[in-house]
Design a protein around this nucleic acid. Sequence first.
DNA 1: CGCATTTGTTGACAATGTAAATTTTACACT
DNA 2: AGTGTAAAATTTACATTGTCAACAAATGCG
Lengths: 221, 221
Amino acid sequence: MPRTVLSPDEIDDFRERLVEAATGLVARRGYEGVTRRRLASELCCSPMTPYRYFSDKAEIFAAVRTAAYQRFTAAQEASTVDGLDALEGLDALGRAYVAFALAHPDAYRLMFELGQPSPDGFPELRAAELGSWTPLRQAMERAVEAGVVTGDPELLAHVFWAGVHGLVSLQLAGKLVFSRPIEELVEPMLRTLFLGNRGPAADGTAPEGEPSEIPNRERAT
Amino acid sequence: MPRTVLSPDEIDDFRERLVEAATGLVARRGYEGVTRRRLASELCCSPMTPYRYFSDKAEIFAAVRTAAYQRFTAAQEASTVDGLDALEGLDALGRAYVAFALAHPDAYRLMFELGQPSPDGFPELRAAELGSWTPLRQAMERAVEAGVVTGDPELLAHVFWAGVHGLVSLQLAGKLVFSRPIEELVEPMLRTLFLGNRGPAADGTAPEGEPSEIPNRERAT
DNA sequence: CGCATTTGTTGACAATGTAAATTTTACACT
DNA sequence: AGTGTAAAATTTACATTGTCAACAAATGCG
């Protein structure tokens, strides 16, 4: 029988401080700069101590990413202020999304970088990941109900998501060659997403009578 | 005076083989799996030999990325078949973009991953990067001239780019929770991009007839 | 108090990128 | 041909990483 066991509080406390330190290190020295030994020196403990609380580095990063998702989710939810109609809410959400990503590029990278290890085996991470996605889905369901956009909410949410994510992803990767600040891209992107999904019955502007000149191949390979 | 010097052809040959091997390694063992020693064993040379041809690992990856951009550019240009009008051309380009990204996820990651080292100091890489961007810009200029979309071509190209990039980026990162195959997202995305920019002004100026219910704040923080 | 069990530390190991030293190779000149 | 010198390639060495195993310290029940 165990004679001495760390209380859950102590464990959580240490894990939290470690995640905090790791997050700071990522922001300060980049993803590659997070070293177990550096981490230990920040926490004033020996390099192997974190192994008592995390089985390996993957688990550490899983915790860091989980925290990032939670903060991201909170930032999105904070954008939902009262008095906004469905369209304004969606717009505010999109801007909050972009603002968070630009303000915390490293956190965003941790969350959405291609090639991050999959959350398999980390249920908390998986849950946080899904959680960060629900504000948009909810806002989209509301928007569809209100009739400001038309279509399958799940599909629409993905399209919106991809739009804003693509923007910040390219920006953070330094790929944009746009001559003006990125804010002047966010506006057109959101406008595009709204106008492009207003749907046929929204206000009669784009009636079905016009089967759209949009290419509609499906059999083209 | 040098008694023996590698001919430029020999140098290029070796560099090419090395880039080839590195590309294969990235595809096979992932980005982190590219090791100088593994590279050497694939090339049947000693681990330090590549240092004669590349000053460090960053330069190796710069070459790998340059090659990837060139292939990507070629794939996009190949989508421009004759007999397509401006809209069809843009559509075909978008599909070619997605197809390439999905077919070569590692190459795409190398090109567009957030946090890849910047191309500073690698003019060839920078040029290849810019080159991969011109097919879209040209197609967009053509589309604007043809009147199928309206607005500043540079801005429109960025919006389109972000749209498709966002889609493949999320897909490759395994973030999509869409219940159906991604192809069923590409179609709506392209349709959204087209429909959302058909209007008389997508550059911030509100369309005349319809004062647009789209939120148009600018001073909101 | 005694001592088993937990907690934390130290040392060691393999693999990595890189630098310096060293060996091998091949051409130019006598 | 023979040789010397500079280029090309290899070998050796080192610092840093993540991880494992053995070790020391502390702690609370009997």
